[in-house]
Amino acid sequence: SISMSAASEADPEEQQREQHARTTLRERFLHCLLAMTNKKVQFHMYEKVKVEATFGASDIDMLHFQVSDLHTPIGVQKEALIRCHDVISLTFDA
């Protein structure tokens, strides 16, 4: 994944600014994930595959999504884990 700090070579003040930006962005992102819980989400995957599922959770490093009622072309999977690397984007209404 991503290196710890792009400003690692820079001065402490720069590092602090970067850390503040990182914290703000991450906090906002976690709230977005929370807002997605129990919502119907459309996943846009590679090869033009689109599936719909009820969002449950993500692991902390965004490697997997846990979903329920995953509608696939061959049927409905009650519970599933989706590999984030197979996903291009996802959409939901709020």
Binding site: I2, A21, L25, R28, C32
Partner: peptide, 20 residues
């Protein structure tokens, strides 16, 4: 994103871990 997906919108945040 991907081969030919295009999304428009107001950017709320970027996940610093996954760059999403």
């Amino acid at each position: 994103a991907g081969k030919d997906e295009e999304r428009r919108g107001w950017l709320v945040t970027v996940d610093p871990v996954s760059a999403s």
